[in-house]
Simulated scan of single mutants.
Amino acid sequence: MMRCNIEKIIKEKGFLKKYIAKEVGVTPSQLSYWIAMKNFPSADKLFKLARILNCKVDDLYEYEEEIN
């Protein structure tokens, strides 16, 4: 199961989602889709997002093992 940490990181860094979307070059709606995992950023947008948020790409999404 994947978990999205984008919104958490944006809040921790003190940014507004609207500002981050503009810096990445997407609409606020597109950023919301990434956060909701309705779709995912392309590799170049993922790296740009990580650079803007000063984190690693791996920090943006996490894979969690499902425990049965």
Rank of each mutant, 00 (worst) to 15 (best):
S42V: 08
E62Q: 12
S29N: 14
L60E: 00
T27M: 03
S42N: 14
N54E: 15
A36N: 13
R51P: 03
L31Q: 03
D44W: 05
V57H: 07
V57F: 04
E65V: 13
E62Y: 02
N54P: 04
E62L: 13
Y33L: 15
L16N: 11
L31A: 02
E12W: 05
K22V: 04
Q30R: 13
A36Y: 06
N39R: 12
Y61N: 01
F15K: 03
P41K: 06
F47Y: 10
I20N: 03
G14W: 06
E65I: 14
E12T: 09
C4H: 06
D59N: 10
C4M: 03
G14M: 11
K13P: 02
F15H: 15
F40H: 10
I10H: 02
L16A: 12
E64K: 13
K48E: 15
S42E: 15
A50F: 00
F15G: 04
K56V: 00
N54R: 12
K17Q: 15
V24L: 03
N5D: 10
P41S: 06
N68G: 09
S29T: 14
I10N: 01
N68M: 09
F15R: 04
Y63C: 09
G25H: 10
K18I: 11
K11G: 02
L49W: 06
S32P: 03
E12G: 03
Y33I: 08
K45R: 15
L16H: 12
K38G: 03
A21G: 05
T27A: 04
N54K: 14
G25K: 10
L16F: 13
N5F: 08
M1F: 11
N68K: 12
A43D: 13
Y61M: 00
L16W: 10
K38L: 11
S29A: 15
V26A: 07
I35L: 07
D59K: 04
V57N: 07
I35N: 04
T27R: 04
G14A: 13
F40N: 08
L49H: 05
V57M: 08
E65C: 08
A21E: 00
K17G: 15
F15N: 04
W34Q: 01
V57E: 14
C55P: 00
S32M: 07
I6P: 01
A43Y: 12
M37A: 13
V26D: 06
F40I: 07
I6M: 02
F40W: 09
L49C: 04
R51Y: 10
M37L: 15
K13F: 08
I10A: 06
E7N: 14
F15P: 00
F47P: 01
K8N: 12
D59L: 00
S29W: 07
C4K: 05
Y61W: 08
E65Y: 08
E64W: 06
I35D: 04
C4W: 00
I9T: 05
E64Y: 05
A36W: 03
K17C: 10
S29M: 13
C4Y: 01
C4Q: 10
K45W: 00
Y19N: 11
M37V: 09
